[in-house]
Simulated assay, not measured.
Amino acid sequence: MNKLLSMGTVMFASMLLVAGCGNMGDNAEKDNREEADIITDQEKEGGNRETGDAYGFNDFNLEIDVNNEDAVDAEYKVEEDFKPEYENKMTKVDLEGAKAMDELDKMFITTNLESNMSGEEARDKILEYYQIDEYSKFELEIEFDDGKKLNYKDQK
C-alpha cells in the first residue's frame, strides 16, 4: 500500500508540473503573447553580426586588382572599435561601418569561407561572387576563429 501511495503522489506531482509549465492557459491563443527568442549556436558562443564575429573568422583582408588597378578592397577585423571597410571600384562603391558590413555580409554568406579551404578554393568563390574572370593581383588574408590562417597571393 505504501508503494502505491508513493507512486500516486509522484504521478500527481508530475501532472501538476506539466500542467503548470504547459501552454494550455487562457492566453495561449492570443497574438500578444511573448515569443521565445531564437538563439543560434554562434550567438551562444558570443558571435553575431552586430559584434562582427558570426562568420567563422575574425580578421579578413582582400585586395583584387584588375588590369593593375584597384578593383576590390575589403577589410574586416573584429576588435573593440569594429569598423569594417569595403570598396568596389568596379561598381563605384566606397563604404565604412554598417553599410560596409551590409555588403560584406552578402559576400561572406554567399562564399561561405571555411578554415579547411585551400587558397585556390577561397579565391575561386570570391572571384565568382564578384564575377571577375581576369585579375592582375589577388591577395587574401583570413584569420579564422579556430586559430588557422589563410594567406593567399597570386599576381599575374
Rank of each mutant, 00 (worst) to 15 (best):
A19Y: 15
K83Y: 08
K137F: 13
N88V: 09
S6C: 03
D102L: 13
G56C: 05
D145S: 12
E29M: 08
K77R: 11
G56F: 10
D53T: 05
E87A: 11
V10F: 15
P84L: 12
V72P: 07
A54W: 14
Q155V: 12
M101G: 03
E120P: 06
M15H: 05
N61C: 01
Q42G: 00
Q131F: 00
A19Q: 10
R123W: 01
N27Q: 13
K156S: 14
A36S: 06
Y152R: 10
F60A: 02
T110V: 04
N23T: 04
E128V: 00
L113H: 09
Q42V: 03
D124T: 11
A100T: 00
D31T: 06
A13H: 03
S6M: 06
D94F: 10
I132Q: 00
I142Q: 06
Y135L: 02
P84D: 06
A71L: 05
S118R: 10
M24D: 03
V72I: 13
K83G: 02
K153T: 12
E128N: 14
V78T: 11
D31K: 09
K156I: 02
N68H: 13
G52T: 06
K137R: 12
Y76S: 02
N2T: 03
I38C: 11
G56Q: 04
T9I: 14
E63D: 03
A13D: 01
D37M: 13
F12Q: 07
E45M: 14
V10S: 11
K106S: 06
E80N: 09
M24Y: 12
T51W: 02
N112G: 07
R49T: 06
D81M: 04
L62H: 09
E143T: 08
D124C: 08
C21F: 15
L95V: 14
I132D: 00
N67I: 01
I109A: 10
Y55M: 01
K44I: 14
D41N: 07
M117W: 13
S14G: 07
D65T: 00
L4G: 07
K156D: 10
I39F: 14
V78S: 04
D154A: 04
I142K: 08
A74P: 08
D94M: 14
E143F: 04
R123E: 11
V78W: 11
E134L: 00
L104D: 05
G22E: 00
D26R: 08
T51A: 04
E80C: 00
E79Q: 12
Y152G: 05
Y55Q: 03
D105E: 09
E120H: 13
T91W: 08
Y135M: 00
E85I: 13
C21Y: 15
N151R: 10
G22K: 02
K153V: 07
P84A: 05
E96D: 11
Q131T: 05
E43H: 09
R123Y: 02
Y130D: 01
A71Y: 13
D145C: 03
E87T: 12
V10P: 02
L140R: 11
A13L: 14
N32W: 05
I38S: 05
E143A: 09
Y135W: 01
D53H: 14
A28R: 09
E134H: 02
L140H: 15
V72E: 02
L4T: 07
D94C: 09
A54Y: 12
A74M: 11
E45T: 03
R49K: 13
D133I: 00
E134I: 00
T51G: 02
N116T: 13
